[in-house]
Simulated scan of single mutants.
Amino acid sequence: MSFEEDDRVILHDEHSEYDGEEGQITQVMDTMFGDSTYTVSFEDGQETGIPEDSLEAVEDEE
């Protein structure tokens, strides 16, 4: 599953201070290998270069 800017996601990265937190994708960057990495903004900062498999989509509550 790929993500787009403004998607809400949960980060799963035990090495990140934002592990388990919900954030919003602010930038999608394509790598030379055809993969995408993401910049995610959180309430008190941001994390860059996040691979797709470290993110989980947040279900809409509508």
Results as ranks from 00 to 15, higher is better:
Glu47Gly: 00
Ala57Gly: 13
Tyr38Ala: 03
Pro51Gly: 06
Asp19Ala: 15
Asp30Ile: 06
Ile10Asp: 00
Thr48Arg: 15
Thr48Phe: 08
Glu61Phe: 12
Glu52Ala: 12
Gly23Cys: 07
Asp60His: 13
Phe42Cys: 11
Ser41Met: 05
Glu43Asn: 10
Pro51Arg: 10
Ser41Arg: 15
Asp44Arg: 09
Ser16Asp: 06
Arg8Ser: 08
Thr37Asn: 10
Val28His: 03
Val58Cys: 14
Glu22Tyr: 05
Tyr18Phe: 10
Val58Pro: 08
Tyr38Trp: 00
Asp6Arg: 13
Ser16Gly: 06
Val9Tyr: 07
Glu62Gly: 11
Ser2Glu: 15
Ser36Cys: 10
Pro51Phe: 12
His12Asp: 11
Thr48Cys: 14
Gly49Tyr: 05
Met1Ser: 07
Ser16Tyr: 04
Gln27Pro: 08
Val9Arg: 11
Gly49Lys: 10
Asp30Asn: 15
Asp53Val: 01
Asp7Gly: 01
Asp30Val: 05
Val28Ile: 00
Glu52Val: 05
Tyr18His: 09
Thr26Trp: 06
Glu56Thr: 05
Asp13Met: 00
Ser54His: 13
Asp6Ile: 00
Glu21Val: 00
Val40Cys: 08
Gly20Tyr: 08
Glu43Trp: 15
Gly45Asn: 07
Glu14Phe: 14
Gly20Met: 12
Met32Phe: 15
Thr31Ile: 03
Asp35Gln: 14
Gly23Phe: 10
Asp6His: 09
Asp60Val: 08
Asp53Asn: 15
Phe33Ala: 05
Glu62Thr: 08
Met29Phe: 14
Arg8Thr: 03
